[in-house]
Nucleic acid binder design. Structure first.
Length: 553
RNA sequence: GCCCUUGUAGUUAAAUGGAUAUAACUGCGGACUUCUAAGCCGUUAUUGUAGGUUCGAUUCCUACCGGGGGCACCA
């Protein structure tokens, strides 16, 4: 419809003023009372035409009213010269039919059809707990994965676990010393802390830990390397259990240990050239005019690849393995300067590494509320937070179903992350941010479940427009779903979808509160179809946000 | 010091350069007793400050003020 209107306006501009090639902005008015679509084109061309915008709008509207067709009820002029389009009831009925036909395909598009998109997110630090920041990253990442899929692309997901460091060697040292037959995640965490302390205590321990680190880096067959592999497997299993609870998974992993080797090779190959030697290290010095990026060390003076070189290796591995047309990666915005340098260096090695990569960064989650932090002992570990929120959800749940309660808890957490525009810090106050009421994940779920419960009772109805039907706000909003999805994909911003689904739910709940859907009137089938279209749209929208949907609440 | 980023109701957030700045939470008040009350209805703004660009600025530009982050061998 947006396109149809654009074409109509373009033709009208040509016919009445002889204007061609004008960028025509067609948008959804903020206030639906103004119509279903609006264009401000009369305002923007008023200068070129040297005419009053209102006059131009009137001329265009007169012409548009002649050519509007059956789907548009009327074209009017308002304010300083906006041209508003009000759609005909029959158009909404047709849209309901489309929704019910397309089902899960409703809303998806072909923006990236035929392309390969690689998404990297959630990259954990193995041997360290998966904390709330990782949940944030995973939530945004998983939604981007769903959005990429809805754009018609072939999507591959990967994660970049940090599996090796001196810290890991410290933990391995402690665990080997204790000689436990069974190891657990908790023990790994404790060993990490204990090893850090012991490392600085005496020289023998110090040397031994360094030796372990060397063996791990070089993959030397040894007790410690074997043990390290076992610990790594345990960590991955832990990571994957959390992922599955969050409703996410990966096609592959690229480990930091692999990327380091690859990155070092590439950096050395491009030194001198892209990189330069300085004080025994290999560094990248950005061009003079790039004041926004700093010089960075890629290989340190001991000859080991730094984080920067590892990311060069990662880029190389991503593009060699998957040849993506678009490579998205998600990190927190603390790393923005780091990736600015890495990508700037990368474009001199292989231009597409930089041109096809999109860095999506999110803010950090800070804790404000007393309740949750004290409950978690000040450590925002993901699993414990999910458990705590899950308990709260279970208290409210009617049938105390654990699985359903967890779905509600996960939605509450994810919603609080996705509702904000990515890139901004989230002041995470469990008392307010993490809500089960009002603008919240559970609100979206509840609205959907409620609609589905009506459908279970009354069937999906038929989208045949009844006599004298007054178009509702709900119908007016439903038709915009595909545009919102497209917008979210273009901007890689799930929050547009969150805002839309909230408004849609509000309309539904408001309508529901004042209407009886299942009744004896001739309108009942249409009202059921409207309910079904709402439920379908919500279901598709929640899928795009990777929010779970319980069967009842 | 340099660079990046951010500033909207008491609070948490929204708003491709467009019309009366949108919601929720909190507080107060209300309706129904009919398909799920995690619901519905009613009740709050000098968009940090000062300029500029524009027919039109929360949005773009400049300066200042306040948060957050980065700036050579951590990730």
């Amino acid at each position: 419809m947006e396109e149809t209107i654009r074409t109509l306006v373009a033709d009208a501009l040509k016919d009445s003023f002889g204007l061609e090639g004008i960028a025509i902005v067609v948008e959804e008015p903020k206030d639906l009372a103004h119509g279903d679509y609006a264009t401000s084109v009369a305002l923007s061309v008023s200068k070129t035409l040297e005419k009053n915008p209102r006059e131009i709008a009137n001329t265009l509207a007169a012409l548009l009213n002649e050519k509007k067709g059956n789907d548009i009820a009327e074209v009017t002029v308002a304010g300083p010269g906006f041209i508003n389009f009000t759609l005909a009831p029959v158009y909404f009925a047709k849209t309901l039919e489309t929704i019910l036909e397309k089902q899960n395909e409703w809303g998806s598009n072909e923006l990236h059809k035929g392309k390969k998109i690689l998404v990297e997110h959630s990259s954990p630090n193995l041997f360290k707990p998966f904390h709330i920041g990782h949940v944030m990253n995973n939530t945004i990442g998983q939604s981007l994965v769903e959005l990429a899929r809805a754009s018609g692309a072939a999507v591959t997901t990967t994660s970049f676990p940090s599996d090796i460091s001196l810290g890991v060697a410290k933990a391995i040292f402690i665990l080997l010393e204790k000689g436990n037959a069974e190891i657990s995640i908790d023990m790994l965490g404790q060993a990490y802390v204990e090893g850090t302390k012991r490392y600085d205590e005496d020289e023998t321990t110090h040397m031994r830990i360094k030796e372990i680190a060397d063996h791990l880096y070089a993959q030397t067959p040894s007790d410690e390397y074997e043990f390290f592999q076992a610990c790594k497997a345990l960590n991955i299993a832990y990571f994957e259990s959390i992922l599955s609870r969050l409703g996410s998974d990966f096609d592959s992993y690229i480990y930091e240990s692999e990327a380091g080797v690859e990155g070092k090779k590439i950096v050395l190959k491009n030194t001198p050239g892209v990189f330069t030697e300085s004080e025994g290290a290999v560094v990248y010095v950005p061009a003079e005019d790039r004041k926004d990026i700093n010089t960075a060390v890629f290989i340190n003076s001991q000859g080991n690849p730094t984080y920067e070189a590892k990311d060069i290796g990662l880029l190389s591995m991503k593009f060699n393995r998957y040849a993506p047309d678009l490579s998205l990666f998600v990190t927190d915005n603390q790393q923005v300067p780091h990736f600015a340098v890495v990508l700037d260096a990368a474009k001199h090695i292989n231009d597409e590494w930089a041109s096809k990569s999109i860095h999506i960064h999110h803010g950090r989650m800070s804790f404000k509320g007393e309740k949750m932090s004290s409950r978690l002992g000040g450590v925002p570990v993901a699993q414990e937070m999910m458990d705590a929120v899950g308990e709260e959800a279970a208290v409210r749940a009617k049938d105390k179903d654990i699985v359903q309660a967890d779905a509600i808890a996960i939605a509450a957490i994810k919603f609080s992350i996705l509702r904000a525009a990515a890139g901004k810090d989230i002041n995470f106050d469990p008392e307010t941010s993490l809500s089960f009421e009002g603008d919240s994940g559970p609100y979206l779920q509840y609205s959907t479940v409620r609609a589905q419960s009506i459908l279970a009772k009354g069937g999906v109805g038929t989208p045949v427009l009844p006599e004298n039907w007054t178009t509702t706000t709900l119908e007016k909003q439903l038709i915009h779903f595909p545009e919102v999805v497209a917008h979210a994909i273009e901007e890689w911003s799930p929050h547009f979808l969150v805002t839309y689904l909230l408004e849609l739910s509000q309309s539904f709940n408001s309508w529901y509160g004042n209407t009886k859907v299942i009744d004896d009137t001739a309108e009942s089938p249409y009202k059921l179809a409207l309910t079904a279209a709402f439920a379908q749209t919500m279901k598709n929208g929640l899928k795009l946000l990777a929010l779970p949907l319980p069967s009842k609440m």
